[in-house]
Amino acid sequence: MRFRFTEVAIDTQAARRDLLDRGAGGYVSFEGWVRDHNEGQDVTRLEYEAFQALAVKEGERILSEALQRFPIKHAVCIHRVGSLDLSDMAVWVGVSAAHRGEAFDACRYIIDEVKHRVPIWKKEHYRSGDSGWVNCERCAAAPHHSHDHGHNAA
């Protein structure tokens, strides 16, 4: 699968090999890392959970869209699930293309769509001892808050 989950560290060297193509002049990748703060709180670790049966379908749809919209060669996205520490890689996107411009554009498109559409959830654990599901706890207090814009840039 071009979109997949892993419970262990993402092997970017292996993933990069899926992008190799003699017609490609380069590749662009994006790594999302676990950050030590969000919304004014000190974050100590994260847990990711996914509804994988649907998430893989939606992720594949996003990669297909990118391949249709941009003249690129290959696109791959790998997302972690489970418990992650600070600076761990949570998500990896790689795109190869004949030219760099399309590779950058497609990579940006994929990570943006993945964050908004794929059923993956992130629970933050804070230094204060609290924890919370990102985009869910504050939504519950503010019913008109939109789902779609993640607060927590990966």
Partner: peptide, 28 residues
């Protein structure tokens, strides 16, 4: 989602359907 695909809230359910309520997502 019904049977691992996004669904309308008004879709008629039939026996054996698998339903998942999807809270706001936060991948990445």
């Amino acid at each position: 989602a019904v049977n691992s695909e996004f669904s309308e809230w008004s879709r008629p359910l039939i026996a054996g359907d698998a339903v998942v309520f999807i809270p706001p997502v936060a991948g990445g």
